[in-house]
Nucleic acid binder design. Structure first.
Lengths: 230, 230
DNA sequence: TCGACTTTGCGAACATGTTCCGAACGCGTT
DNA sequence: AACGCGTTCGGAACATGTTCGCAAAGTCGA
């Protein structure tokens, strides 16, 4: 039932060929490689070469590359210090969500991991304080447990979307492309889009996450407190 | 400046070897393949085989696979009829955002496309009415053009996040995994998470998009109307 | 010592997206 | 007819993630 992929364990009471590589060594080599050449160049074969082992041997220690990235993120989260949280429940929710956002936004390859299956469930306890903080804040503001979960999920969706879309829009837009984009707006069919015109690129670059987050939190808390409504 | 990748064009006044395949044929074959075997099996080689051409020839007509998916989505959007929009600006915003959401949620491989670079800019005019509807609603509610863009972006983030996370969480969770997940919650460190326990899976399955969307829209509109505030 | 048994290491191989480069092909000019 | 030109076609090849099957290397019990 234990299957493979367990930790290397002390050599006591262990059967089978002793491992030459540990998961910790793999993560260390991956961090080294990323730090040296950038995370885009992190491939299974290069990582194996860095470790001096065969590429397929890695699969004895990690499930797949996605798993490796999740492990790396957890490893990163473990190294961060947990900030003090505001006493006010609403501010605590905002602070926790902002912390989630900022950590991921600073993690350049977060976008590769954010959408993996069951992401939240694969986080270490060192990251779950953010979830806990949001649930506790919701609870103190009178939310039921179910409403707390829903609040977290809605904030999570917004946060993930923000990071994902932004990280993929980082490419520089050429003047030619910009012109083509603007020209496509037919003022008769999409007048507002045409009127907005070339302000899109400018405004799209702004960081509205903090303001919108507060708005969303306040709205969701009010909605949870109210019995019903459209 | 025109470069390759243009339409096959009528044979008049055209130099060079005449194309055997058109982009329209490629999209048609892709739809056929997806309808027959599911979109997971759509590969460049299979698509080329379906068309009876060499795999690399496809790259004369599409930029890459991502481009093909965007083309397929635009093709899909073109076939949808544009619903009547409510006269009330707030309801119009909600209706347009919901339409965006529903179209993408019904498009099983939307998640593969949603995060591509400059996604919105690559949409056909047949899809831009949704953007236009949101901008017009915002305008009628007194938003400046910049605020309209920001409103759209915040709704877009939330929508993208919802669809992306949900589509990747569709996998069935085994009893074993669920047990492991719940057991990890240490009641002393994360009491609310522990208290929530196994309700997470149940609540996470609920569709809270419509309610949270309305909340978000109302909050953002109110924030835009107010001069300032935390 | 000897044979299960168990776990790790790894080379071969496969599917996939994609690039390269030469061949094929039709047009216009000489 | 012959040649250059511009374009498309497509096979070879490459990098990548990953699976498969087998060899290697320990432990445990006879």
């Amino acid at each position: 039932m234990m299957g493979p992929m367990s930790r290397p364990a002390a050599s006591s009471g262990r059967t089978g060929r002793p491992p030459l590589t540990s998961r910790a060594e793999i993560l260390e080599a991956a961090r080294r490689l990323i730090g040296r050449d950038g995370w885009e160049t992190l491939t299974i074969r290069r990582l194996a070469a860095e470790l001096g082992i065969g590429p397929t041997t890695l699969y004895r220690h990690i499930k797949d590359k996605e798993d490796l990235l999740v492990l790396l993120l957890n490893d990163h989260l473990d190294r961060l210090e947990r900030p003090a949280l505001p006493a006010d429940p609403r501010d605590r929710i905002v602070a926790a969500a902002t912390a989630m956002h900022d950590v991921l936004a600073d993690w350049p390859w977060a976008a590769e991991v954010l959408a993996v299956d069951g992401f939240i469930a694969r986080l270490d306890e060192s990251a779950l304080w953010m979830v806990e903080a949001i649930l506790s804040g919701a609870s103190e503001r009178g939310c039921t447990p179910d409403q707390g979960i829903e609040l977290f999920r809605d904030l999570w969706y917004y946060t993930v979307g923000e990071i994902l879309v932004r990280s993929r829009s980082a490419r520089v837009v050429t003047e030619e492309e910009r012109r083509t984009f603007v020209r496509r707006f037919d003022a008769s069919r999409t007048p507002h889009l045409a009127a907005v015109g070339d302000r899109w690129g400018t405004v799209a670059g702004r960081d509205t996450y903090p303001a919108a987050l507060r708005t969303f939190v306040d709205g969701l808390l009010a909605q949870a407190a109210a019995p019903a409504g459209d």
